[in-house]
Design a protein around this nucleic acid. Structure first.
Length: 757
DNA sequence: TCCTCAATAT
DNA sequence: GATATTGAGG
């Protein structure tokens, strides 16, 4: 092929006139025959060829003089060094275009080569026609480089930077961008070919006039973004400031603004989901343990299945929306919230208890990893938000199905709970495990109260690492350890595989012990639990006490383990602290309000809110748990009723991924549409308060019907459930399947806008 | 000038 | 359909 191209670029030390001619190619292949053939063909193309049969030698040559070659053609399979390795090193060290050569046409292999940075992948036997064109890679690379230099140096190098393989702003996509740019340009303006406006650098039309290269928000980039947002605090996180903090070259304010827009939508959705979850939980928790059981077991089962891939976006957690963000979102302006402000719903306080095993961060985190092979692999991955996002969207839609109500409703404050995961239930140690989310947890020392707790010590808040994956060794084992779960509630349930039977559902209530555990607690806990990052989800079991004692009272035992969102990797998440502060601020006011209104909902209800003090040291430090107990909040230590665990029956269906299941169940059990009277689902968007009130009401009604039978442990047939509760249950269960969407997905996308919308 | 939202482009 | 960019309005 003849090349009539203009000189590649004036600045180079190479002869440009006949660019392709004399292009210096380093050919590497351990097979002498192939190497010779390759050499011959390359020479025919008038390239300047250097050959070597050893990858190591090639690397050495390249290192000795980085400017000695223009392009490298390497075999994939070589004894001394894997072609991919060579490719990687070359990419990192000298940023030369590398073409992989192999007889293996397996898509995966090719994909791998490209993924590692190969500009092309040629199949053996290589043909001269293919080699004739390889110069284009060199040209393209040069163009990009020059453009890069002219415009500015961007930190994230296109091919090279080893640290952020994925963080390339545009680099990795240089070629692609070039194409895209050209396209756009052609459409728009036209004079691209001559665009001389760029002055000397007009060499490439792309650079001058075009629209900006499309920014790919890699994990790395997104992480920076999140860090910046967190650092600023959601309220102050505006594009310009974020951009400044991110300090990423070539990234524009517009880019950030766009991403911020998406991010906000995401947060919004999260909060919405959280609300739903909370509602669901409330509905479920209020009535029968069986609900929970099913939910828990089934849900876990699903998780397990979903996690089959085993890959979790470790970074995902880092993305958790800052509390501040939620607060903002919750504000009417931001979300159009109904009812009380989200913050108002949260009671802050804290109690510290380091004794609890739960405090062991390792335990919690492992959960996430448990099913997974390697936590490390996950590092650098997008935050868990993504997961949540997925959940949300699906969840919402599911709810719509079940309830037949509008799906798009946005939940107000409930969002505050969204991120919190609460584990209720316990064996000896009652405790609530709240996997919290940064959003909700603010430490309010002054609020700390243990009142109502029989065993204050049992309540512990353990800092939870939002980014489980960051954790080094030891993490993975934890989750999978079912025994631990069984033995101690505190152990979080591994999301990846929740053996239904291994999960403690909850502890039966001891009526004597129970004072007035309130529905609110249950709800909040449940909601928290669900809303929480899937990874952090601990086994949750809520066993509402029978209505015996007081029909109006919702009894449930809850143990809360609150972990803070602080991350081990301070560098990544140091920002959350700031967020926490924001949350704190926002919560203070509302908190009071909540208190004021609390009684309105139920005289007996007590709110138990836990919060994490973001200021606390994240590592290994026991978080402080705040609890507000209206009247009697009893955390009784009961023996876990394992029998409950085994009762996952039909509930399992509910958790099925396929959409059909929920529907089928509905039919099977003759579920009625959600009834307004129940209020639980009737309005998915209702405020938590509303939900609670509805729940209480429902409970009272139910109590009358049931006549106080002791059914603490009894499992109710689904069909016996009130419609509202049933619907709620379905919705709740429906959410699990989506908790663990394809994790791989997130590897590439920090968070999915689509999920947001 | 900047932010946010919505439309548009890819 | 998902996601980034662009444009308009405040």
């Amino acid at each position: 092929m003849t090349v009539e191209e203009r000189p590649v670029n004036a600045g180079n030390d190479e002869p440009k006139d006949r660019f392709p001619v004399g292009m210096r190619v380093l050919a590497v292949d351990d097979d002498p025959t192939c190497l010779r053939l390759l050499d011959t063909l390359l020479r025919r193309c008038q390239y300047h060829v250097t050959t070597t049969s050893q990858a190591i030698t090639a690397l050495k040559m390249l290192r000795e003089n980085k400017n000695r070659f223009d392009l490298v053609i390497s075999d994939v399979h070589m004894p001394d060094m894997d072609g991919f390795k060579l490719l990687e090193l070359v990419g990192l060290e000298m940023d030369l275009p590398v073409i992989m050569l192999s007889a293996n046409s397996d898509t995966k292999v090719v994909m791998k080569g490209i993924a590692h940075g190969a500009v092309d992948y040629l199949l053996k036997p290589v043909r001269i026609e293919e080699l004739k064109n390889i110069w284009q890679h060199v040209l393209r690379r040069r163009k990009f480089d020059s453009k890069d230099q002219n415009n500015s140096n961007h930190p994230e190098k296109p091919q090279g930077s080893g640290e952020s393989g994925q963080g390339n702003l545009a680099g990795g996509n240089a070629d692609k961008n070039a194409k895209q740019n050209r396209k756009r340009k052609d459409q728009d303006e036209d004079e691209d070919e001559d665009c001389e406006d760029n002055g000397l650098e007009n060499e490439d039309p792309d650079t001058a006039t075009q629209k900006k290269p499309r920014v790919v928000w890699s994990v790395e980039l997104h992480r920076k973004f999140v860090a910046a947002v967190n650092q600023l605090g959601i309220d102050k996180a505006v594009p310009k400031r974020i951009l400044d903090l991110m300090n990423v070259e070539r990234l524009t304010r517009e880019n950030v603004a766009s991403h911020l827009q998406k991010y906000r939508l995401y947060l919004k959705r999260i909060s919405c989901v959280a609300s739903q979850q909370a509602n669901m939980v409330a509905a479920l928790g209020g009535k029968d343990p069986s609900y929970l059981q099913m939910a828990s077991l089934d849900g876990f089962g699903d998780f397990h299945a979903l996690n089959g891939s085993g890959q979790l976006p470790n970074a995902a957690l880092t993305s958790l929306p800052p509390a501040g963000m939620l607060g903002r979102l919750n504000t009417p302006a931001g979300l159009g919230i109904r009812g009380l402000a989200p913050s108002g719903m949260i009671q802050l306080g804290r109690a510290q208890n380091s004794s609890n095993p739960i405090n062991d961060l390792g335990k919690l985190r492992p959960v996430v990893l448990s099913g997974n092979r390697n936590g490390n692999l996950l590092q650098g991955m997008p935050t868990s938000l993504e997961l949540d996002q997925l959940q949300q969207s699906k969840c919402i839609s599911r709810i719509g199905e079940f309830s037949g109500r509008n799906e798009q409703t946005v939940f107000p404050v409930a969002g505050g709970f969204s991120e919190t995961a609460v584990t209720i239930g316990s064996s000896n140690n009652s405790f609530l495990t709240v996997a919290n989310n940064p959003l909700m947890l603010q430490g309010h020392p002054q609020l700390t109260q243990s009142r109502g707790l029989r065993n204050p010590s049992s309540v512990n808040i353990a800092p939870r690492n939002p980014e489980p994956f960051d954790i080094g060794g030891g993490v993975s084992s934890h989750v999978s350890d079912q025994n631990r779960c069984n033995d101690n509630w505190q152990s979080a349930v591994p999301l990846t595989g929740f053996p239904s039977n291994s999960i403690p559902l909850g502890t039966p209530f001891n009526h004597a012990d129970l004072g007035h555990s309130n529905l609110t607690d249950t709800i909040s806990q449940m909601g928290s639990h669900i809303g929480n990052n899937p990874l952090d989800i601990c086994s949750t079991s809520i066993v509402p006490a029978p209505l015996q004692d007081s029909r109006s009272d919702m009894q449930c035992q809850a143990n809360i383990l609150i972990g803070n969102n602080v991350q081990h990797d301070s560098s990544k998440f140091s920002n959350f602290g700031g967020l926490g502060n924001n949350l704190d601020q926002s919560l203070n006011g509302p908190k009071q309000r909540w208190e004021d209104h609390r009684q309105d909902y139920s005289t007996n209800s007590n709110l138990l809110f836990s919060s994490i003090n973001s200021s606390l040291p994240t590592h290994g430090v026991v978080s402080q748990l705040t609890q507000r107990l209206g009247q009697n909040t009893v955390v009784s230590n009961q023996n876990v009723d394992t029998s409950l665990l085994s009762q996952s029956n039909s509930g399992a269906y509910l958790l099925q991924h396929n959409m059909d299941t929920p529907i089928r169940l509905k039919e099977e059990y003759s579920l009625e549409q959600t009834q307004a009277q129940n209020g639980f689902i009737s309005n998915s968007c209702g405020s938590l308060e509303d939900l609670m009130a509805a729940m209480i009401k429902q409970e009272q009604q139910e109590a009358k019907l049931m006549d106080g039978g002791d059914i603490g442990y009894e499992v109710y047939p689904l069909r016996t459930f009130p419609n509202g509760i049933y619907s709620a249950l379905l919705s709740f269960l429906a959410m699990y399947p989506v908790l663990f969407p394809t994790i791989e997905h997130w590897h590439e996308n920090p968070f999915k806008p689509s999920e947001i919308r």
